[in-house]
Structure formats: C-alpha cells, structure tokens
Amino acid sequence: MSTAVATKKRRELKDYEKKWTLWGRIKESKASYLFLMPYYILFVMFTIVPVIISVYYSFTYYNILEAPQFIGWTNFLNLFLHDDVFILAIQNTFIFAIITGPLGYLAAFVFAWFINELPPKVRAIMILVFYAPTISGQVYMVWSIMFSGDSYGWINGVLMNWGIINKAVQWTTDTKTMMFVCIVVALWSSLGAGFLSHVAGLQGIDKELYEAGYVDGISNRWQELWYITLPSMKPQLLFAAVMSITSTFGAADIMTAMCGFPSTDYAVHTIVNHLQDYGDVRFEMGYASAIAVLLFGACLGLNRLIQNLLQKVGT
C-alpha cells in the first residue's frame, strides 16, 4: 500500500517536472530541437555570430594582417568628425531612401490595390509584369545601356529626336542626373516581395467586410481603403515595409552598376558603398565594421518606428 502511494507520488512528481520545470520541458522537446538544429547552427554561424563580431570589431583597429587592437569609440568619432565622404554617403542614402522607400512602398501598394480588382486572368498577367523586374535581378544592368551617355544611348536618342534636349546628357557621370538615374532603376527593380505581399493581403480580405461597410455608409473607394482594406491587411503591410527598408538601406549594387565605383564626386555613394570601400578595397575592417554597426542600428530603429506608425492605420 505505502509503496504504491510512494510510486504514485514519484510519478506525479515526474509529471510535474516534465510539465513545469524548464529543464524537464527542454528534455521533453528533444525531437523539436533536433528538427531545429541543422538550420539554427548555420543561422547562428552566418547571422548571429557575424553581428556580434561586427560590434566587437567596430571598437578595434583591424587590418586582417595584425590582431585587432581595441581603440574604443575612435572609429565612430572618425566617421562623424573626420570622414566627409561618410557624411555625404549618409546624405545620399537618406535622399535615396526617402524617395525610393516611401514612394516604392506606396506605388507597390497602389498597384496591388488596382490590380486586385481586375479579372483573375488579367490580374495574373499584371502581377507577372510588375514582379518580373524583381525576380530577374541583375537585368537592371540593361538600364546602363539605355542610359548610356554616348550616341548609342537609347534614352538620349529618343529625347534628342523629340527635341527635348539638344545634346547628349551624360546620365551616369553628371552629378545632377546620377541620383535620378539610380532612383528610377531602384523603383523599377524593387517593387519586389512587398508588392506580392500586398497582392496576397488584398486577396485575403473577407468580402463580407465590404458588404457590411457599404451598409454602414462607406461611400467611396478612399473610405473603403482606410476603414476596411488597410486595417484588414496590417500584417502584410508590415512585412512589405520591412522588405522595403532592408532593400533601400542595403542599396549599393545599383549605384555601382549604373555609375561605377566610386561614382563621380561620390554623387551616389551610399553607406553600403562606403562599407565596401573600406572592407574590400582598403581592408580597414574595424572602420568598416563601425559603418556596418551604424547601418544595423539605423535599420532596426527604423523598423520599430514603422511598426508603431502602422499600428495607427485605420483609426
């Protein structure tokens, strides 16, 4: 009798441990961790550890050949106080981001919204047309032929033919037009994953919400948008915003492809271009890491800001 009670007690205790203590629960979930392990080992190796290493290097002088030397905040101070090109890069990145970020995001949404009302077959074709530039990646280099400054550039040819300009514009080397070219190409190529997310979000909205809205007195498409559509697809809006921030702040390849590296007078030199300059060309890894850390901080901060802003949609 007493042994039976004791075993029962012990079993209860064991069950209790299994359910409620952290270690017990971890032991119970061995299978789950096995599933996670292969992915997360690589994720930690190529994402988490690199972020930590970057933060460490940003406080050091490191040229790969010698061991890193701890120098405190010097890299950051130098960036802001003695590096004019970095200040220029910040300006360029923000000008670029302010135009392509919100404009690209808005355009992606507006096109998705319009496309969503088309008949299914036309819609499928339009989605393909709008998404093709993103999926075909490197093809934006074709723009560099079209914008070419010599007499073979098609855009110059057309503009001269129409009499809008009378001599060839050096689109990719004239500091006045370089940013414009990069923005056009970026807008073209980066509707991207955000656009698809918008399309999918719109298709997922319950049609009855609209019916109810009409009865409640919604009278035009703008009210419908603000009170029904947007609040119903907040998660997709946020996802698209995250994609948009990541791609605009990471922009550098477009600049290099269009205007060369380094670009004339650093007119389209972005933060990532600057990072590549110090990382690939000068091998000042500590300094480059400081740039990376600033970029990292700016992206995460901006993401939080956007998340808070999107909470206010539809209220």
Binding site: F46, T47, V49, P50, V51, I53, S54, Y57, V242, M243, I245, T246, S247, F249, G250, A252, V272, L275, Q276, G279, M285, A288, S289, A292, V293, L295, F296, C299, L300, N303
Partner: peptide, 11 residues
Amino acid sequence: LMFPATVTYIP
C-alpha cells in the same frame, strides 16, 4: 529580416 545582408559580410 530587418537588416540588409551586407551588414554581416565582413565577419
């Protein structure tokens, strides 16, 4: 997802 991959390319 929130930061570009370039951030970690040196490490």
